[in-house]
């Protein structure tokens, strides 16, 4: 699928200006870049949470699922939270087992730790099928074991349901592990895009090289 070009301005400050972008179905596209590069704003505009300056949707006829950085746990049990986004109890149980929160199914979601809430939120968004799945730093609060399980789940979901997945991440190693393609943002602009290994191993732009050097890659 293809997004339209758009910009986003807060007050007088333009925080994002992006050209048309290709988000291939069945693939994971990672968005990387330093703090303040516009990654989360990009995700919010794409998800329709924020309006672009053009006041027009940048995707049309596409169902979009968006997992924010801090997903809200509803005042109900973990299992019921997950079932707000679908009725398939078997699928809910399967997701909870994969992310090791099956023992917390009957516990109030308000009492989950940060990592457990992040796992519950990921299970919840994966209950429905979307054409485009946007995940804003879904594993930041998780430990390594949960992160790897979550990455595996995201990869399988994207491939099996043929949905385009957009993964906003701070972790270059995470992008390398699961992303098929990478978009590099800096100061609200697209610096570079391409296949993950090509961009991360041999970046063609100086800004990307400096950013990767900073992360010791």
């Amino acid at each position: 699928m293809k997004t339209k070009s758009f910009s986003k301005t807060y007050g007088k400050r333009r925080v994002l200006e992006l050209p048309e972008l290709e988000l291939p179905e069945g693939q994971i596209t990672a968005v990387i870049g330093p703090n303040g590069s516009g990654k989360s704003t990009f995700a919010k505009v794409l998800a329709g949470i924020e309006q672009p300056d053009e006041k027009k949707p940048i995707l049309s006829g596409v169902s979009v699922g968006y997992l924010p950085q801090k997903s809200f746990p509803f005042r109900m049990t973990t299992e019921k939270n997950i079932l707000t986004n679908g009725t398939d109890h078997t699928r809910a149980a399967e997701l909870m087992k994969i992310l090791s929160i099956d023992a917390l199914a009957k516990q109030s979601a308000k009492k989950l730790s940060g990592g457990e809430t992040a796992r519950m939120a990921l299970c919840r968004i994966l209950m429905s099928r979307y054409d485009l799945l946007i995940l804003d730093e879904p594993t930041t609060a998780m430990d390594m074991e949960s992160t790897l399980a979550a990455e595996q789940l995201i990869r399988e979901t994207s491939h099996e349901t043929d949905c385009a997945a957009l993964l906003i991440t701070h972790s270059i190693s995470q992008a390398r592990r699961i992303a098929d393609r990478v978009l590099v943002l800096q100061r609200g602009e697209l610096v570079e895009q391409g296949a993950t290994e090509a961009v991360l191993s041999a970046p063609s732009k100086e800004e990307t090289r400096r950013f990767l050097d900073f992360y010791g890659l």
Binding site: I49, V64, S71, F72, T84, N85, A121, I125
Partner: peptide
């Protein structure tokens, strides 16, 4: 605001 961001993200 936080609840709305989540519910809209889920497509509710």
């Amino acid at each position: 605001p936080a609840l709305r961001e989540t519910t809209r993200g889920l497509g509710f």
